[in-house]
Design a binder for these strands. Structure first.
Lengths: 151, 151
DNA sequence: CTAAACCCCGTACCAAAGTACGGAGTCAAG
DNA sequence: CTTGACTCCGTACTTTGGTACGGGGTTTAG
């Protein structure tokens, strides 16, 4: 319940005031009811939400997807929430697997070059890009909208 | 060395022809020298590169970052490549850690709702968004450019 | 009480990553 | 040798996720 103004909230999350307002317009952050005089005040809940949004974003989730993730929290339909959450988990696991493949390749690159400063090429990333079984958007499970990869 | 036209290449990666051309303009894909008549032809190298780009993208890397990753492959300056690669590895590990936190939270959500279909709220994501120690862009380590999170 | 710093709200503008379109040339099948 | 699908190239438009600005009002430190 630490009462923050929009500016303090924004600063705490390392974003601009305008960004906070933008998220409010998008419905990612609620417009708070509490006010100190004419100014809105924000508490820990909003702050946590904002931090979550930024974190999820750096991980490649779009604001729409983040919206879905946040909605899980308020869902009253437990059955549905479970299904949804499981889809998200699968998606996340797939991301982790792919990141680890890339990391492994980068590690080979580092090791490969460790003791030689030759100028021979060292095509590691080549191995990386092998025929992945075509990653399908597990995220769009419930809503078929947005991203169309094929055309 | 399977000779593909741009259309076949694009289809194989699940993108549009325009996207391939866009990547060429950005320098992510080379414009091939080989031609069959008046039409350019593409081989496995280009195809692999394209697949890699798409994969990295879904993981939240920007095209500029992907460009850097791909450049590692061709770098002759081993010393520099090593440093660069290590920074990328650190970044990837941080991403993985964060993804796993989110997964853990989602799993709690699933378990928490497993046996109760009550309508009480179940604020799991709340726990997720706890005061993360301010994620700094490890990616911008070598080049301070682009993303300015603070203002 | 006043000045600096901050909020409110609206509209406009921006960069990244495509996507669409259109006219012209080309290739391959029938 | 024509027809349909595809390529080439250029320019223009779109969506996403913000930023910037400007004209107010408000707060609070001095």
């Amino acid at each position: 319940m630490n009462n923050l103004t929009i500016g303090a909230l924004a600063r705490a999350a390392g974003v601009g005031v305008e960004t906070v307002r933008y998220y409010q317009r998008r419905g990612l952050l609620p417009e708070p009811q509490s006010r100190k005089g004419a100014f809105r005040t924000y508490g820990d809940a909003e702050s946590a939400r904002l931090h979550f949004i930024r974190r999820a974003q750096t991980l490649g989730f779009s604001l729409d997807e983040i919206s879905e993730l946040l909605d899980l929290d308020e869902m009253t339909d437990r059955e549905n929430a479970r299904v949804f959450a499981k889809a998200k988990i699968a998606d996340i696991e797939s991301r982790v697997r792919q990141l680890e493949e890339i990391r492994t390749a980068l590690e080979s690159l580092v090791r490969c070059c460790e003791h030689s400063d030759a100028e021979t090429p060292c095509p590691i990333l080549h191995a990386l890009a092998t025929p992945q079984p075509q990653l399908q958007p597990a995220l769009a499970a419930a809503k078929p909208a947005s991203r169309k990869t094929g055309r």
